[in-house]
Design a protein around this nucleic acid. Sequence first.
DNA 1: TATTATAAGTTGTATATACAAATAATATGT
DNA 2: ACATATTATTTGTATATACAACTTATAATA
Lengths: 241, 241
Amino acid sequence: MEAKDHKIPQFAVIKQYLEQQINTQQWAPGRRIPTEQSLADTFSVSRMTARRAVQELADRGILTRTQGSGTYVAEKSQSIPNLPIKDVVAVAKAEHSHKHKIISADAVQITSDIAKLMGLQTDTLVFQLTVVHLYVDRPIQWQKIWVNRSMAPALLKQKLDKVDPNDYLDWLCRPQKTDYQLKAVLPTASQRLQLMLSQQDTLNCMQLSRRHWSADAVFSFSIMLHPAESYYLGDELKEVQ
Amino acid sequence: MEAKDHKIPQFAVIKQYLEQQINTQQWAPGRRIPTEQSLADTFSVSRMTARRAVQELADRGILTRTQGSGTYVAEKSQSIPNLPIKDVVAVAKAEHSHKHKIISADAVQITSDIAKLMGLQTDTLVFQLTVVHLYVDRPIQWQKIWVNRSMAPALLKQKLDKVDPNDYLDWLCRPQKTDYQLKAVLPTASQRLQLMLSQQDTLNCMQLSRRHWSADAVFSFSIMLHPAESYYLGDELKEVQ
DNA sequence: TATTATAAGTTGTATATACAAATAATATGT
DNA sequence: ACATATTATTTGTATATACAACTTATAATA
């Protein structure tokens, strides 16, 4: 773990020092740490080198900096960082093993709950699509998409059985921002049917809700359902050794 | 969205340009982008300024760089970035509304599946604790922890009803690395009981598995169960406007 | 032809410097 | 005592330079 034959750069040494001070609680959260200049002096490097060490820890959220004031140890994060959740459909597409099936595609009046999430008025007309995504021939995701009609007026005129509507929408209005939410749900009977889940199969699904934004408006809202016990969602913890 | 009265720094301008080229597919994944020097020349800035723009995009995984070769547009990520999952227990602790209840605390022989995950031999003695975490008086998490005995030999001698064993373990062997995995599960009868879930309540739980590493060894493995429909796990999607 | 040096190109690290911008402490004036 | 300037401190941006480390292309050699 240690025996590197390569020279450790100086900014990395300072970084290690800072991390150590924080991890061993020598420097408590909220505490002000030495200035860039002071670090540069003690480690006999230029300010820019010391700065890099500090900056990289700030980028990771370990330190917070404010111009004119100083650099402080960040309060302990209350969120689990970077839980890598795989986009199973993207993986399937990358492996050229993806197919999709359009269950329904209509223009409907939006319900109030979805309207609120999309920033639209209730009863606005939106496109509503139900899609099942397959890995080879096995369903891996059930998806319902609501689309802002004014931002993709020609959606239903596309050959949606050929082109995944998600791809079309991504191409048409490239998402600037994306929102996610995750929860565990029980699938409805029809969802179970469309996901081809038998009685023996798990009763649980991971439900991912997603909003795509273009500028300041939501252009699509999706609910995506994944069979829970499958290996698809979440990184498998690898065996040690 | 635009009308900033502050001057936009030059590295940000270059960053924007690069992002635009990538987002509009002008530069496809895998394509080599202009060198730092070339960017510096076209934007009439120093190489270090151009470098910063490139570097920050590389830090975000949008570009990949290899010394001696060049900088390339990264292949499309197949994982959903930065899904912010709150650590509900940490939040409860921050609000000073956290209590915990030790259900059991023993030394047991490890089963083969857990042994594999912890990198230990089957039948090794480990500490096994079952803990329920409360927000004020409501259970928000059921937790089972397996602890490498050699790394925390005095664990069971602590006043575990006073000090959360997680805090003790964090203090004793500060985790260098952490692994997570997430899935949806149905709680067992006893888990439901300990989480005080009634028949009317949701049948689903989000299960988070976590490994804490110290150097190259796993020192604890936890399974944490959260009632699913609660607001605890995952960021609530906010209403627009 | 195949192998091995050599050179050129590109990113990585580091320095010394300068000024801008925000904050915090001090001095000033009423 | 209070409000207002002024100054000092600290981080943010930017430049020009130098050399190290690595990759790739080219030239030299067997």
